[in-house]
């Protein structure tokens, strides 16, 4: 879902850069307030964790393989603002090291995979947790839906940006992107649930961290 350069119009680039820059600036302020100067080494190392976790492939249909985005996982474990910082650091590094996602499209990529995916997952997780109650099975259901939803929401945002840029008509790109990512998101959901249940079984205290 990393948008390369050349796909977005100047208006889309400008708007998403402004929103993402504002979001990241606020995220830095909020995490600094809540966890102090510890946030810098911690967020840096956890960004490296997301980077490394994305190297673990799992089989998808027909011999292809996928990897997790990880936005939902960090949003559930650490909170949406921390997830926004971590994902934007990961995306900047992916752009500058692997050219995964363009430089002009960086604002849009941070918006989709940091803001939309992170906050989407956070609110879905809280909302479903509230409906189903606090036992561990409902937490797993909430985790699955949150991770699946984060991928879907991010792909919808991505499709809308492309449509607004005039790259592809909205009637085509929206169902195509959302349809493909509704399937990809199942993998993200299953992996996220597996991670959550593993952390719950071994280090349940980490699930009760202060979220930012």
């Amino acid at each position: 879902m990393h948008i390369p350069d050349g796909f977005l119009s100047a208006a889309a680039v400008g708007t998403t850069y402004i929103i993402s820059a504002g979001g990241v600036a606020n995220a830095v302020r909020v995490t600094k307030e809540k966890i102090g100067e510890k946030h810098i080494p911690m967020m840096g190392i956890l960004a490296a964790f997301v980077f490394a976790a994305q190297m673990l492939n799992f089989p998808v249909a027909g011999g292809t393989s996928g990897h997790v985005i990880g936005a939902a996982l960090v949003a559930i474990l650490l909170g949406p603002w921390a997830a926004l910082i971590i994902m934007s650091v990961v995306l900047i590094a992916q752009c500058l090291i692997f050219q995964d996602g363009g430089l002009m499209a960086l604002g849009a990529n941070i918006f989709n995979m940091g803001i939309i995916a992170g906050f989407g997952a956070h609110y879905l997780y809280r909302f479903i947790g509230m409906i189903l109650g606090g036992n561990s099975r409902s937490k797993m259901v909430a985790g699955f839906v949150a991770a699946w939803g984060s991928v879907l929401l991010a792909s919808i945002a991505c499709a809308l940006e492309l449509a607004l840029s005039g790259t592809s008509p909205v009637a085509v790109v929206l169902p195509a992107m959302a349809g493909i990512h509704a399937i990809i998101g199942i993998g993200e959901g299953l992996i996220t649930v597996a991670v959550l249940s593993m952390v719950m079984a071994t280090r349940a205290d980490l699930l009760r961290l202060q979220r930012v």
Partner: peptide, 8 residues
């Protein structure tokens, strides 16, 4: 999933 959990 377990591997990512351990990594986390």
């Amino acid at each position: 999933g377990n591997m990512i959990g351990t990594l986390f």
